[in-house]
Each structure stands twice: as C-alpha cells, then as structure tokens.
Design a protein around this nucleic acid. Structure first.
Lengths: 188, 188
DNA sequence: GGGCCTATATATCGGTCTGATAGAGACAGG
DNA sequence: CCTGTCTCTATCAGACCGATATATAGGCCC
C-alpha cells in the first residue's frame, strides 16, 4: 500500500495538512498498523494534487509557514474505494527484539533480562496510551481496530512473562562462552 | 537493523550463500520477525566481504553459476555481538488488512466478510506451516521464538473470530451506499 | 533575560530497501 | 516435449525512512 493511498484514507475522514496527517497516524490506533514519514507524505500530497485526487487550500498563519489544508475530491474518493478493493498484502510483524532473542546465548544474562523487561514495558505503555479517535469512539470500525491492536499487545506480554525463562535460564548456571557452545554442540 | 547485521546473524549459525540466507528467513521462524530481499542481501554480502567481516569461497557447480559460500570471520562475530548490544527499535506490526477495516463501511458487506475469512486463513496457514529450524529444535532460543510468533497468531485469530461482527453488522441490515452514508451522517 | 525544550508547519536529501525482473541450467510431471 | 518449479547470482527503478534545516511561538526554570 502506497503512502498516497494512506493519505487518501485519512483525508477521506476529513481535511488535513501534511503535518496533521502524520500526527493522526501517531496518535490514533491506525498508527499501530500503518505509518508514514514526512519524507513520503509531502511528495505524496503534491502528486495527489497534480492528479486531481485532492485539492489544496493555503491558510495564512502568523509567524508559522502557511498551513496547506488538503481535501479529498470526488475523484479521490473513487480512487480510494478502488484501492480498497484490491487484496491486502500479508501482515508483517517486524521485531528486532525477537531476532536478538535468537542469539540470547551471545549476550550476558542480565542483558537478556533487561531486553525482556524493556519489551514488556513498551507493550504496557501501548496498552495505556491515550489516543484521540480518527473516527467517533462509537464507530464499530474504530472499536474493532483498537481492540485488534490491544489483543495482540496483550498476547505478546502474556507470552513474554510466561516464557522468558526459556532464554533467561542457563543450562549449567554459568555464562556460556563460545567455547562452551561448541563443546555443547559436539555432544548433542 | 541493517541487512548486513541480519546476514551476520544467519552466518553466525553456519556458512551459507546469499540464496540460502534468503531461504532461511522464509522457511524458519525468524522470518516471522525479520526479512530481507535479494536486492539487499547481495550488496550487503559484498560490503561485508570488503570490510573483512565475512569470507567468500566460490564452489564450482555443474551448469549453475558458482555457489558463493560466505563464512563469518572472528572480526565479523565481534561486530555482530557489538550490534546485538544496542537497544532494539520498537516492534512494528504492519497490516493493510487492519487499515482497510477502518473503512469497512465503504466496502460491500460480502467483501468485508471475505477479507476477514482470508485474514484468518492466512494466520491458520502460519500456524501449521512446516519449518526447518535454524537452530536445533531443542534450543531454548528457537522454542522461545517459535512460541512468540504462534502466541501472536493465535491471539489475532481469536480476536478476529470473536469480534468480526463489529465490522460485519450493519445498523439497518441493508447495503450502505455512499448516499445512505451521507444521509446517516446528517441525521447523527 | 537567557537558555532550553516542545509544538506547529513545510520541505529536502542521502542512503537503504523492496519488488520485479533477467538469465541460465536442472529436474520432475503430464 | 513442454511447462513449471527449483537453484543461484545479480541488477535497477522506484519507494520509503530518518535525519536535518528553517522559522516562530509559548512555557518553564534559574
């Protein structure tokens, strides 16, 4: 899914500037599933304007640069509905933390524990994070999305708490060196 | 995390060609959390060789182009351990499906149901997918990683099944057209 | 008042990564 | 025999991220 499509989606819910589009991703539950940087939002809005899918109205402001408020056109709405009709690509869960856990035996035990603590903390913060709603709170779509994220976060926390011993425990209670690992592999 | 680091990690578990590195991501549980394309793996291996972090040995093969088997050096191992010592970036869960659900009211009801069916099916396939292990199956790291992915998949499926009615149900039981949506918004 | 952080707001840019594509022989199935 | 799948390397356009620049207002601490 291109950033152009993401922008059309947000603008479909109401006019906004490039800055506001970014903020909406950061501060609403959509941000758990999709994001975009300024470096892709601004060029996308320019292209969308050229293609006639959005219109731009510059609002003069004191001090700050003009606020360019973008609105979706009928043509833009049609393009968005059309983009929503193609099959979505598969979900991607990217986690450097998980990758690092594969190599837990290269790290000192306290480092592993610290990483897991940090990971759980991050998920807990996501659970309590206050967010404004992109759609009205009573919207079923918004509820569905919010709950989807929360369900995944809760599952991750639960798993980490219940299974952290797998990577924290040491077979013989001492730090595993490269030499020890080789020896172990040989006997296995 | 750069692709160079991902390659070092895989090579740390055993020598491999660029092709094999890609396959290992696809066919093992690590692929649930990290991935890389050929377009980034091959240049990464070239750079790693230049930097002396890996060595390359070309094995002549009948018919096929030479198989370039890369092995990690001591310098490479040190670099990898060093890379594992920096704090991981936050997990990212990217889902076009979730984004589309925000706009469920723009889609025909049967399309929404179809999307959810497809999503559940994809997760079920991930649950039963046969994978070879990057590390020996009895490795606790491998178990931890495999379980982490499975826990998240299971939670996603459970949530989708229990809450799909939120986006499938219609307030008045009829297909919502653009005109109907406008009318509804006016009365709300 | 000075220093500093945060927020609003647009915009650019180097470097990185993806996804598609190409080429080329092997090997299996219909 | 032909088509598809597999192994293997490799490239490239286009998309995207993260950092940075610029400029101003407002709040906070000392």
């Amino acid at each position: 899914m291109e950033v152009k499509t993401l922008c059309l989606g947000v603008l479909n819910l109401g006019a906004a500037s490039g800055y506001e589009i970014k903020k909406k991703f950061e501060d609403s539950p959509v941000g758990d599933f999709m994001e975009a940087s300024y470096g892709s939002i601004y060029p996308a809005l320019t292209k969308l304007t050229e293609e006639g899918l959005v219109t731009c109205e510059a609002q003069a402001q004191e001090g700050r640069p003009d606020k360019k408020v973008y609105s979706i056109t009928e043509k833009g709405k049609a393009a968005f509905v059309s983009a929503m009709s193609v099959s979505p690509s598969e979900d991607k869960y990217r986690s450097e933390f998980a990758f690092m856990m594969l190599f837990a035996d290269l790290l000192a035990p306290h480092q592993v524990s610290h990483l897991i603590d940090l990971q759980i903390l991050r998920y807990r913060q996501k659970q309590v994070e206050e967010r404004f709603q992109l759609l009205p709170p009573e919207s079923r779509s918004a509820q569905f999305l919010e709950g989807y994220g929360q369900a995944v976060f809760a599952a991750a926390i639960k798993y980490l708490e219940e299974n952290r011993h797998l990577v924290e425990a040491r077979p013989n209670g001492k730090t595993q060196t490269a030499a020890a690992a080789t020896k172990e592999a040989a006997t296995a």
